[in-house]
Nucleic acid binder design. Structure first.
Lengths: 235, 235
DNA sequence: GGTTTTATCGTCAGCCAGACAGCTAGTGGC
DNA sequence: GCCACTAGCTGTCTGGCTGACGATAAAACC
């Protein structure tokens, strides 16, 4: 079975699929599009599409993200998630899909592009519950993306990717609470994040957009890892 | 650009590549094969090969592992690592490679199979240093696999995958020391691993194969996560 | 028997997280 | 203006865990 004889091996289609997560109204939410064509016509699916000739995988993911959401030049986080290639996962042909995870701040309503008949944000609870039937194996992909996000904010500063450029400690705490689905003690959380060097940089400004006493505004600091990590309550 | 029109999109070759790690003689080592055919004929590379029609990705990885090493039915750990698909990474055609990570106990010498002209274990230090030139982008893949292994033994019980079925606390400690390249305090390590519930199960036996006072033998317990994690010294 | 090697048990101080009290400074109702 | 309400911020205490390291135990080698 010489590896160099490439003609003996079957051609695959290669796609990228995007798990785009944000926090909206206290709920971790994912971007979905309504499919305009078969298969799964009319069903909701993760945005994605075929990788083009001569195009890198991450470049394809960035292109699809821009096409589906108009998210260009926005400071979002994009990383490879995993690859799904079970035979039969796409009824048309053998397709291997490289999934990417995108973490974004709360965005304006998405504008459908490409072949999508619609686009919207839905809470991952609904998408993964009984009601939401995602096309292909996209429920599985979404699950993996959600779990990656949940575990990654423990030991990295990635939670700030869900926040606008300037944010308060309380807003950051509500991100953690929404992603993990738990309540955190505001005082201990404050001590933790302000005590980690280079995690948050005060901008000097304050805001009262959450009501109550004015809160200091911060920007993301240079620290990328959280050591020791933020502990997720076991509950 | 309708997604359903599959004929417009270029065909890709899809391969799996394996980062097979073990601990030999106090050094984290990886399995490499010598390529018998162009491109990179005569160079060392990670084992791998094309995914077959109708074959799942993980199944392809398991098949290649068995072909290259005869590692069948052995209790090794296998997980997907990442996918590499830069245009031009394979001079023959557009190839997307799904890398898998395998953690195995110290094994007998590998027996080359398939199209390999040779197979051997080399320490990752040599492979990634100046001397070792791996074919394709395999150095990058190996780096990612090593980093995954290093971080994963922090918070999971995966380090035991490098040990034989029965092992001592000291042997497990030497695994951590070899993978991280640091020295750990034997007393604190002993307290940590024996104090974590369901991590180690005593078999009742003892051994002196490491010299010194006889040590208790243990088997892997049911715990898969280590909470709180084993801390890697920053040095 | 003495030395060496490795395993195992203890002790102690410091750091950190969880629990929780108390105070501050805005908004909005009356 | 006063008062409730909300949210931010500071501080204290305690228990658990880690790192540093002393001491003992049981084998092999000389």
């Amino acid at each position: 079975m010489p590896r160099s004889d490439t003609s003996l091996f079957p051609p695959f289609g290669v796609t990228v699929d995007l798990v785009v997560l944000t926090v909206r109204e206290h709920a971790l939410s994912a971007l979905t599009i309504r499919r305009g064509e078969p298969p799964f016509q009319g069903a909701w699916a993760l945005p994605g599409g075929f990788v083009r000739e001569g195009e890198g995988l991450e470049a394809a993911a960035a292109r699809e993200l821009a096409e589906e959401t108009g998210l260009d030049r926005l400071p979002v986080h994009l990383e490879q998630l995993a690859t799904f290639g079970d035979p039969g996962r796409d009824p048309r042909m053998r397709v291997v899909s490289v999934a990417y995870l995108v973490l974004a701040p709360d965005l304006p309503a998405p504008r459908p592009g490409g072949d999508a008949a619609g686009a919207r944000w839905s809470s991952v609870g609904e998408l993964l519950g009984d009601g939401g039937r995602l096309a292909f194996d996209h429920a599985r992909i979404l699950e993996d993306g959600v779990e990656r996000a949940r575990s990654k904010i423990e030991y990295s500063s990635l939670a700030a990717a869900f926040c606008p450029e300037e944010f308060t400690v309380g807003e950051l705490r509500r991100v953690y609470e929404s992603v993990w689905g738990v309540a955190l003690d505001p005082r201990n959380f404050h001590r933790k994040v302000t005590g980690t060097p280079d995690f948050l940089v005060p901008t000097g400004g304050t805001t009262t957009r959450q009501g109550g006493r004015p809160a200091q505004l911060f920007r993301r600091g240079s620290a990328e890892k959280l050591n020791p990590p933020m502990l997720r309550p076991e509950a």
